[in-house]
Every structure is written in C-alpha cells, then in structure tokens.
C-alpha cells in the first residue's frame, strides 16, 4: 500500500515540475523504482530502524513533536484552499471584508458566473480552453515522442548538436519571445478574433519538441535488446517505434499528455499577448482579469467560484493520471 501511494505521489510531482519547464532528471530513478516493490518493503523495515534503540519516552516525545509540526504545517498548507472554497460561496461578493471567512453563504456566485456572460463569458472561456487543450495535448505528445525516440534510439549526425542547441534555446527567457511570437502570428494573419484559438494551439504545441528530455530519459531505461529482437523479426524503425517503444512508454505518455493538456489552463502570459478581445479569452486570462482594479469590486467572489471550477477538473485529472500510471507501471517493462 505504501509503495502504491509513493509512486503516485512521485508521479504527480513530475507532472508539476515539468509543467514549470524543468528537466526532471530524477525521473529515471523514480520511474525505475516503480517495479521493485519487494525490495522497497524490505528496506522500509530497515530505514528508520535506528530510533528503535532509543528509550521509549524520548521516542514518544519525538513522535509527538513531529505530529505537532505536521499538523501546523498541514493547516498552513490547506488554509488558502479552504479559504478559496468558502469564499466561492460567499453571499457578499466584495473584496477585503472584515472577517477572514465569509459569514453568509449562497450559490449566487456560481449561478452568476455561468449566466451573467456580458462582461466575462466564463462558459465560453471554458470551452475555448478545453478545445485548445485537447489539440495541444495530441500534437505535443506526438512531437515529444518522435523527438525523444530519435534522440534515445537512433544515432545520426547532428544528434548531439541538436541536443545542445535545444539546451541553449531553453536558456533564453521565454518571455522574451512572446512579443515576437505575436508579430509573427500577426504576419500570418492569425490574430483576428476568430483565429486566436488556432494561434494559441500553434504556439503552445509548436515548441513541444524541445521538451523531450524527460521522455528521452525514460526511453533510455528501456533495454535496447527489445529493439534488436524486433529488428531481427524484420521490423522497420517506424515499426519499432510504434509497436515496441510507444506501448512501453504508456505511463510517460499519460504524464506528457496531461502536462500538455494542463498548459493552456495555466498559462496566461502568451494568452494575454495574443487574445485581445473578451470572447477569445482563456480561463487563466479571464480569472486574472477578474482581479484587475476595474473588475475586482464585482467579480471577487465569482473569481473564487471560477477558481474552484478550474481546480476540480484539474484535480480529477491528476487522480486519474496517478491511477493509470500505477496500473501500467506494473506491467510495462516486465513483459
């Protein structure tokens, strides 16, 4: 049981760190860890066995201290989340109220959020973001898989060069190119209000090939003998890719798909530069705008309601991903 929880915890962690554009070098180690559960259980016994030697009183005191610390920290960590949740039901929609938690509760914020669509069309934003997210998810998974496969499995000239170039490109601050991307999209005629969805899909997924490092790290742990066996059976490189490597990479594909799916929900910098009119907004941009000076008086509580609406699907997706990861992890590389 403990093993199951740990792998899940690890997985969700990866989803987020890489969402923050970091190359997760620990992936390999943790991914491999998924399938040596018996060893882990054995070690779990030995790890932390030393305090046993201490006297009982001291140990109980330490236990008490650690529970106290965990409780305090737990409250700090959970408080803002509870606050958003309660604030979304606040009957009084003004910001900066006299009490920390609301005093009266109602469903009005949710009702208004989905019906009063003249200023911020939340349902429209939600659909926009969903459409963008689906396309970005498909395209970037394809890009990442094919680049990672080439980097991990094939040997060709310019392979190292490509990896170094991507590394260097990643060091340029991405914000720097936001304005340039806008001009390029404008030159392509993609900034008119009907085309921004297409533009955002293009922008979010085009660079995905550069984020191959985590996937490559995972592919590097797949035994090369599998490829060789497939080749002796007459598979071409593409067949090795689609029939051998992709099925084994399923857990990482889920992880990659979900991070790609999440990026349009979380990014607001690019969206702010590209979407100039209300009806093209994405959820992140809309929520951000609700807290600007001109709207905050009316939209404060509805912002909280919108935040809860966005968090629920993302949290569900998270849990789903962890389940899937867990299941496929146990079968993949053993077979």
């Amino acid at each position: 049981m403990s093993n199951a929880m740990d792998s899940r915890a690890t997985e969700s962690n990866h989803a987020q760190t890489s969402a923050a554009d970091s190359v997760d070098a620990a992936m390999m180690a943790t991914a491999r860890g998924g399938y040596k559960s018996e060893e882990e259980k054995k070690r779990e016994k030995s790890y932390g066995a030393v305090p046993k030697k201490n006297r009982y009183g001291a140990r109980e005191f330490r236990d008490f201290l650690s529970y106290l610390l965990l409780t305090i920290l737990g409250i700090i960590w959970i408080m803002p989340i509870v606050w958003v949740f309660l604030e979304s039901f606040n009957a009084n929609p003004e910001p900066y109220q006299a009490t920390f938690f609301p005093t009266k509760y109602s469903f009005d914020n949710y009702r208004l959020l989905f019906t009063r669509t003249d200023v911020f069309n939340f349902p429209r934003m939600f659909v926009n973001t969903l459409v963008i997210a689906c396309f970005v998810c498909i395209i970037s998974v394809f890009f990442v898989l094919s680049v990672a496969f080439c980097m991990s499995r094939l040997r060709f000239r310019f392979r190292k060069t490509f990896m170094n170039v991507v590394l260097i490109l990643g060091m340029f601050p991405s914000i720097m190119s936001v304005v340039a991307v806008y001009f390029i999209l404008k030159a392509m005629g993609l900034t008119s209000s009907g085309m921004t969805i297409f533009a955002l899909i293009l922008v979010y997924s085009a660079g995905a090939g550069a984020g191959f490092y985590v996937m490559k790290g995972y592919m590097d742990t797949i035994p090369i003998s599998l490829d060789e066996a497939a080749r002796l059976d007459g598979c071409s490189t593409w067949q090795v890719f689609t029939r051998i490597i992709i099925p084994i990479c399923r857990p990482m594909i889920v992880y990659q798909a979900i991070t790609a799916f999440l990026s349009p929900w979380l990014d607001f910098v690019l969206a702010r530069t590209i979407c100039r009119t209300q009806d093209t907004f994405t959820v992140a941009l809309g929520l951000w705008s609700m807290l600007q000076k001109e709207y905050i008086q009316d939209w404060y509580a509805r912002f909280a309601a919108g935040a809860v609406c966005v968090s629920i699907p993302i949290a569900l997706l998270f849990m789903f991903m962890q389940h899937f990861y867990q299941e496929s992890m146990s079968g993949a590389t053993k077979g």
């Binding site: 923050a20 803002p80 968090s311």
Partner: peptide, 14 residues
C-alpha cells in the same frame, strides 16, 4: 499535495 492540484496561478492570485 492538495495544494498542487490547485492551479499555480490561482493560488498565487489568491
């Protein structure tokens, strides 16, 4: 890990 499930920009704005 509850705090991870809430999108970062939402918790930061809050």
């Amino acid at each position: 890990s509850m705090s991870i499930a809430v999108p970062q920009f939402v918790s930061l704005l809050v």
